[in-house]
Design a protein around this nucleic acid. Sequence first.
DNA 1: TTGCTTGTGATACGGCCCGTATCGTATCAT
DNA 2: ATGATACGATACGGGCCGTATCACAAGCAA
Lengths: 189, 189
Amino acid sequence: MHRKILEATRELLGEEGFADLRLEHVAARAGVGKATIYRRWGSKEALAQELLAELAAPHIAVADSDDTREELLAAVVNPMRAVTDTPFGPVIRALLSQIAVNPTLGDPFRATVVQARRNEIARLIARGIARGDLRPDVDVDVATELLVGPVYFRLMFGGQLTLDFANRVVDSVLRGYGVPGREFPKPEP
Amino acid sequence: MHRKILEATRELLGEEGFADLRLEHVAARAGVGKATIYRRWGSKEALAQELLAELAAPHIAVADSDDTREELLAAVVNPMRAVTDTPFGPVIRALLSQIAVNPTLGDPFRATVVQARRNEIARLIARGIARGDLRPDVDVDVATELLVGPVYFRLMFGGQLTLDFANRVVDSVLRGYGVPGREFPKPEP
DNA sequence: TTGCTTGTGATACGGCCCGTATCGTATCAT
DNA sequence: ATGATACGATACGGGCCGTATCACAAGCAA
């Protein structure tokens, strides 16, 4: 029951988007009375929130390896694959605005999924620093955004989400765009 | 008339989001008959699209300077300020999902706003290369995503959009996270 | 079996909003 | 003055909201 409702929600969210999602359609597709949905969730947002949390959970952890570059690449490829190859993709697209605007969805998502992603990358960064591969003063929050931000940028604004793309992002983060030896002093305020 | 309808749309889009935007409310707030809106736009999406294009236009161009770092910083600060300090912010938040999912809004937005942003950054990169500040083989698309992606990441998923943040992004893109002199060879497939 | 509780699918309800059609009116150029 | 055009207002059938009510089936106790 619970399961069938979430599945129907997932399908219709991908087909119609959040704005045109109709709980009556969810009930019909799940073979369920409309009241049953309201008994358990009480709103479209609550239903979407549970679905989102459930779909996002499997894509957080990054496998350890003994290579810093490989681990950072996984930190990019993980959310990329989640978005291109799993049901999480259509759902997160449909809910981006709600996450950005509606604290009911946004706050739990940020507190769990986003924070877990940041923690995971912080762990990788710390391992890279311990190996002597990364600068000790790396800003882990900005690192998260440099690694994962481009993935979501392309998800919204177009562009191929390929392994080559992920490699270029990692290369850029790792080596930087600056010509070696040349200085770009930050001006004092 | 046209103006008043777009203003009412902008306000209500920020207050209610796209899913709960009601054209009857837009008409009422604009002091206009509902039919007038349908005569000119014919759908909620078309109305949102015109508003979005109008609000995004002023925030594309980046002022030239004689300093590569300053220009790249402007490429980050520009979209950041657009999102924090102008009416574009609430509107783009409300429409992120529609852009990601609905080609009616997404295609024109990608073809104009996003492409213009990419072109502008390509110009800055070319100038930086000509000055000898940047590697000649910089991938301009990835550069765009590394510079602007973090801004949209924080817009959706939380985090302060401050000048300090923009500086850290530019520093990272410019200098990279790699320890100078240390190599991170990309493995052959 | 009987009786009670719980959760269900179905249905109906007033209310809101959709998108369209049709009014009478105000503002133009001719 | 005449005609055309665009307007605000209003009304319409239809869809969906969120709630309430119903009969019914499953589970459990005695």
